[in-house]
Design a protein around this nucleic acid. Structure first.
Lengths: 180, 180
DNA sequence: TGTTGCATTGCAACTCGTTGCATAGTACGG
DNA sequence: CCGTACTATGCAACGAGTTGCAATGCAACA
């Protein structure tokens, strides 16, 4: 139940409409917490009744009106409260790990080609993180306190992709399928 | 929707009761796919109507009777079919990443102590994987084809914990909080 | 002019998984 | 003898998230 909090963080940084949030969740924040626009609208509604956020309608010309949400004092309180409660370690859930584990009962070639595809996805994502870091934080030693969180999260993504690539390589090597 | 398939893999290796499966999901397979016993019983029921597994009742003395499930031919077919369909990349969902990202709006000390706790959990899990590898695969060069899947999954866990530790260290270092 | 795509919000139905509860016999430690 | 823990199976209610669908009005492209 942390989508609420992900939204609060996002709104604490900058007010946004549901649509804006949906796009943010497709990009930056979405790298470690995905959400569809349907889900976002639903949760925003609940958060508004909880007084964590408040909306005001912005009329636009040429495009539909939008509701811009801002975090409230209560929302900030909730963020603080939440940040000081221990985080449960969420179990990994990896379908491809199940497939690899069950390789003797599966289609070996298909799974290996799946692994190759996944490797490429990791490489692409890694490149994205790298570019993003180079753009926003060209000088890592000059990162301010307020940017540090975002930077560290980017690092997490980066490291995770590296690990993902390394694991794929081990698999492909183990099955002698790393030549293409 | 891969719990079915995780169960199929488990049953393909060895028949089991729901209770047995629940314990396996607390241990080996559970490292990359968690499931509660309630969930397992529910899914087993569905799988039985789908003819993927079949159960026979085993009467026991001194303890409750149990239903031992075995994979069927159809179950094996399904496993094969599933293994040859592409695996969607499941998005990461990390509550602690949200907290780190939102650190400027949260309780800094609490989050950092949370990170320290998490680091310890990673260390413990890493040790567990290490011990497990040493016990089951003392000689990595002598691993047979049928064990390879299980071994590689263990490797994935190992690498992930390492990455987790490294990330925690970066955070603690960045905030100058790595002394304890 | 027709089609595609963007901006914007939302509902309804469904699936997956969690939490809480229930039952029941045995074994073991205090 | 009492409480706790283990073996064993399951239901009911709920919550989170996904999939599918809908509306509207503008801009750009073919």
């Amino acid at each position: 139940m942390a989508l609420e909090h992900a939204i609060l963080v996002s709104l604490a940084e900058k007010t946004a409409s549901g649509y804006d949030l949906a796009r943010r969740f497709d990009a930056s924040i979405g790298h470690f917490w995905k959400a569809s626009h349907q889900q976002i609208y639903k949760v925003l509604g609940r958060m508004e009744s909880d007084k964590w956020v408040e909306a005001h309608l912005v009329e636009q010309s040429g495009r539909p009106d939008k509701k811009v949400y801002a975090i409230t004092g209560e929302g900030r309180d909730e963020l603080l409260r939440w940040s000081s409660t221990p985080t449960p370690i969420e179990p990994t859930r990896s379908e491809i790990a199940v497939k690899v584990r069950g390789l003797p009962f599966g289609d070996r070639e298909a799974v290996l080609s799946d692994v190759r595809t996944r490797r490429e996805a990791h490489v692409a994502q890694l490149a994205y993180y790298e570019a993003s870091a180079a753009k926003h934080y060209p000088d890592p030693s000059a990162i301010g306190e307020d940017e540090l969180g975002a930077y560290l999260v980017l690092r997490a993504g980066f490291m995770q992709e590296q690990t993902g690539i390394a694991w794929c390589d081990e698999i492909l090597q183990a099955f002698g399928a790393d030549e293409r």
